[in-house]
């Protein structure tokens, strides 16, 4: 992207543009949304083609589909408990939507939709609205006792209650910014090192030798980013489960 330019343009890769020609342009369908559709298709294909053999002893693809299912299923039942099973499809969708977004973003010429704060914030707000609705549905007005830790002296109420409310409201902020910042940081570093490599190579024979450094750094960074992609999706899903646990059980 920045190959032909003299300066480092690390943020240009996050610029949205419409895709799919005039049809996409007429409905403002961006390349970010195209990647979302591709990720959704891959998730559905994994489960469909994985479950299709229905074998007692699974093959590789079936084992992958079953492991995905079991992984989220165990996470949900361990974190939320028995009542958490009805949230299983939601957590599954959330985890794999973020994971595939992170991983697809590492492919060349693709786009990382999780690097947009608007997307991560929308997901985080969805989570926090769901958690609050679930808590209100199960516990009614008793839900507001969540902001009052049992056994605290009544004199501290003016301090504790605002602190608890702020910490509750800061959940979607930390949830969305954590994912967004991790993704942006990784991709900016990729871009900076790659641009630096091209600029070095432009300097002649000595530059070719010098370009090996940023290239090696990018290779190492790619391994690290694969870890971050999985880890951030996991963190998002686990925190969602913990919030849902709080909503179901209060304290």
């Amino acid at each position: 992207m920045a190959a032909g330019e003299p300066s480092i343009d690390a943020l240009g890769q996050f610029k949205l543009h419409t895709t799919l020609g005039p049809i996409g342009a007429s409905v403002n369908f961006t390349q970010s949304n195209l990647l979302m559709v591709i990720a959704s298709g891959l998730i559905l294909a994994l489960l469909y083609y994985g479950a299709r053999p229905r074998a007692i002893v699974p093959g590789r693809l079936q084992a992958a589909a079953e492991l995905s299912y079991d992984f989220i299923y165990n996470m949900v039942s361990e974190q939320i408990g028995h009542e958490g099973r009805k949230f299983f499809p939601f957590v599954f969708t959330l985890f794999f939507f973020i994971l595939f977004g992170n991983l697809l973003g590492l492919l060349p010429f693709s786009f990382t939709y999780t690097s947009h704060i608007a997307v991560t914030a929308a997901l985080a707000i969805l989570v926090i609205v769901l958690v609050t609705v679930v808590a209100l549905a199960i516990h009614g007005l008793h839900f507001f006792s969540y902001f009052w830790p049992s056994g605290a002296p009544i004199a501290l109420a003016p301090i504790i209650v605002p602190v608890e409310i702020i910490s509750y409201l800061s959940r979607p902020v930390s949830l969305s910014i954590r994912l967004f910042a991790n993704m942006v940081a990784g991709h900016v570093m990729f871009e900076v090192f790659a641009t630096f490599m091209v600029m070095m190579a432009g300097a002649g024979v000595i530059g070719y030798a010098g370009a090996i450094g940023p290239l090696a750094l990018n290779v190492i960074l790619m391994g690290f980013e694969l870890l971050v992609a999985g880890l951030q999706a996991y963190v998002f899903a686990v925190l969602t489960c913990i919030y849902l646990h709080d909503a179901v059980h209060l304290h």
Binding site: V37, S40, F92, F97, A122
Partner: peptide
């Protein structure tokens, strides 16, 4: 930016229902 989020809502809902 807003269009992206609207499409996100549609795609996420469809994915959730299909899953």
């Amino acid at each position: 930016l807003l269009a992206q989020v609207v499409w996100l809502g549609i795609i996420f809902l469809v994915l959730y229902l299909l899953l």
